[in-house]
């Protein structure tokens, strides 16, 4: 019971530290903000043109459907990247290491495992909270520009957000174990914020990458959460567009916008994508626990005082 209360207090404190630090919050919101700006300035119109290019001449498709499709694409991008980038930038454990707050916690009768778990849970909760808010905004946006989501789509999107946040938290927690300076923290945050958008296909559809690049990206588990988000965000609009498109064009449209992905010459089924993400989470969680244990063991003193080497 004692350790549970400590865990609860620590998680609360860690979440509070993140949201009270405006700079930390702003840095973690850079990627979603960049995506929104890119979408408003030119990506929106590019994808709108790309979608309309699939529609045969003379066929009239409502603006709400096109906007619903591109809006779904935008928010699937935002959520696919945010789950990872927010997790990296909101890792309070790294900041605590840098400003030595962790030393203050370590001189209290609190188990190191409780402290470690509090950082993991807080990181997961803050990321989930930010991504959950982004998802709520996406629903409002889509309700205004063009609503084509079903209840099942929303439920599945929530599940993917949950898994992707867990995936991002595991990655960020592993990286956090090795970050020991402000410079390294800034470098990692900047690198992840700028790189992850590209490799997850958030800025540009993976389908437009060169074949070798596509093959490499296919081996990254994060890719599948992007594809899953795209699939569920655009499923309603794609089906509605199918009424206006010739045979095969719907699949082509879905592939062009990463609503599906091919590996080893075949389309990866939805269940396999879920399985890949879940396996990635389990493996990363295992790596994180192992590394934490090894780091803790390295810091633990010898059971008996060692004999000094003569110098």
């Amino acid at each position: 019971m004692g350790e549970y209360r400590k865990l609860r207090v620590l998680v609360h404190r860690n979440v509070k530290v993140y949201f009270k630090d405006k700079m930390l919050f702003f840095v973690s919101m850079i990627t979603p903000l960049i995506l929104v700006v890119l979408f408003l300035t030119f990506l929106g119109s590019i994808y709108r043109d790309a979608v309309t290019s699939f529609i045969p001449d003379g066929v009239n498709v409502s603006n709400r459907l096109i906007n619903g499709f591109t809006g779904g694409w935008l928010f699937s991008s935002i959520l696919a990247t945010s789950c990872v980038t927010v997790a990296f930038c909101s890792n309070v454990m790294v900041n605590d290491k840098l400003n030595r707050a962790v030393h203050d916690f370590r001189i209290t009768p609190t188990k190191r495992s409780t402290l470690g778990l509090s950082y993991f849970l807080a990181n997961f909760l803050t990321t989930l909270l930010v991504c959950g808010t982004a998802f709520a905004v996406s629903l409002i946006y889509l309700a205004i520009v063009g609503w084509y989501l079903s209840f099942a789509d929303i439920a599945m999107i929530l599940l993917v957000i949950l898994l992707n946040t867990l995936f991002g938290t595991c990655l960020a927690s592993i990286a956090g174990l090795f970050i020991n300076s402000q410079g390294a923290l800034s470098a990692v945050c900047t690198l992840v914020s700028s790189m992850y958008g590209f490799i997850s296909g958030a800025y540009m559809p993976i389908a437009q990458f060169a074949a070798p690049m596509r093959a490499v990206i296919g081996f990254l588990p994060g890719t599948y959460s992007t594809v899953l988000l795209r699939y569920y965000f655009m499923r309603g609009t794609t089906e509605a567009l199918g009424e206006y498109l010739p045979d095969g064009a719907v699949d082509s449209l879905r592939r062009s916008f990463d609503g599906s992905i091919e590996m080893f010459g075949g389309e990866v089924p939805i269940w396999a994508m879920f399985l890949i993400i879940m396996l990635a989470v389990v493996v990363l969680l295992g790596i994180y626990l192992l590394l934490s244990y090894l780091q803790g063991r390295r810091l633990r003193p010898a059971k008996a005082p060692r004999v000094a080497k003569s110098v």
Partner: peptide, 11 residues
């Protein structure tokens, strides 16, 4: 004393 550092030797 606070266990933030480990000694090379001693009690």
């Amino acid at each position: 004393i606070c266990h933030a550092l480990l000694p090379d030797s001693g009690e």
